[in-house]
């Protein structure tokens, strides 16, 4: 180094790195590779999440307030719905639930009054007198109720159903007079019919099975669960293994079913300890057979 020259700083040394440049041939190859990658990028299908529309940058800066507002709104709606579910009045105070419904059943040949609010079991009172017993659990399991539900569904546009639904809805809005059929629009008929069918299904399938009709959440039909089994009961005790081993050694291979039954009887009669002692008494030595007493 020449001490008489100008001072050298770190910045000067780093500036030297600016002068590091690749040769021209490098850029030719670089361009070729870049072109190939560019074409591949054009051809390659992009993932679906990259094709989703994005918010504009102006909206993006408000993403946290917007997200928070959305979360609050969802929470509010959820809480409100949940509160609505649990605050459904019981059957005694619900005038709608107390209103008897009339459903047409083809098999009975008449119109039946159906009271879904009865907690001990809905009562079908057949107007024609052909079918009037109170529901029991056995009756629920029978196919009669299912057939009735299907039949009711198939007659969703029946006059009786429409009249029933209107008789339920009108008092809620302060109306008194029962509407005539001619006053109903087709959509009103459908809505009324669907409501009726849904209520019938719920009462038959869920409420009566659980024995708690008209109680919101509990009235839903629950899937059958397998009975809980103690894990210890599922284990085979060590004595059983030992007994089975000894039986296998003692008893020859069964040739027919009678031998199988004999083996099973012996296995049940002889406890593990007894069997162990018996086997210990028998033995072979020097070509002979020993028995200990």
């Amino acid at each position: 180094m020449n001490p008489e020259r100008r001072p050298i700083t770190v910045e000067d040394l780093l500036r030297l790195k600016r002068a590091e440049r690749p040769a021209d041939s490098f850029w030719q190859q670089f361009d070729r590779e870049l072109r190939a990658k560019q074409l591949a990028a054009l051809v390659t299908k992009r993932p679906w999440w990259q094709r989703l529309p994005r918010f504009s940058p102006r909206l993006a800066q408000y993403r946290f307030p917007l997200g928070a507002a959305a979360a609050v709104a969802v929470t509010f709606v959820s809480v409100r719905n949940y509160s609505g579910d649990i605050s459904v009045p019981d059957s005694a105070s619900n005038p709608v639930a107390h209103t008897s419904s009339e459903v047409a059943f083809p098999g009975s040949g008449g119109t039946h009054a159906f009271n879904p609010a009865n907690s001990s079991g809905a009562t079908f009172a057949a107007a024609s007198g052909e079918f009037s017993p109170a529901f029991s659990e056995a009756a629920l399991s029978s196919t009669a109720s299912a057939d009735a539900a299907v039949a009711a569904e198939s007659r969703v546009n029946s006059d009786a159903t429409i009249a029933l639904e209107l008789s339920r809805i009108v008092p809620l809005f302060g109306g008194t007079a029962a509407p005539q059929e001619s006053e109903l629009s087709p959509s009103a008929r459908n809505i009324a019919a669907n409501l009726q069918v849904a209520e019938l299904h719920e009462s038959l399938g869920g409420g009566l099975l659980t024995g708690s009709s008209g109680r919101g959440f509990e009235s839903r039909a629950l899937p059958a669960r397998a009975a809980m089994v103690d894990p210890l009961q599922q284990m085979t005790p060590p004595g059983e293994h030992r007994r089975a081993r000894y039986l296998t050694a003692m008893i020859s291979t069964p040739a027919d079913e009678s031998l199988d039954r004999t083996t099973a009887r012996m296995a049940h009669r002889i406890s593990g300890d007894e069997l162990y002692e018996q086997v210990q008494r028998f033995g072979t030595r020097r070509g002979g057979f020993n028995v200990k007493f």
Binding site: M1, N2, R5, R6, I8, D12, L13, R15, L16, R18, A19
Partner: peptide, 10 residues
């Protein structure tokens, strides 16, 4: 720039 720095260094 690099020429000047290199000349100053050696």
């Amino acid at each position: 720039v690099s020429k000047e720095i290199i000349e100053a260094l050696t």
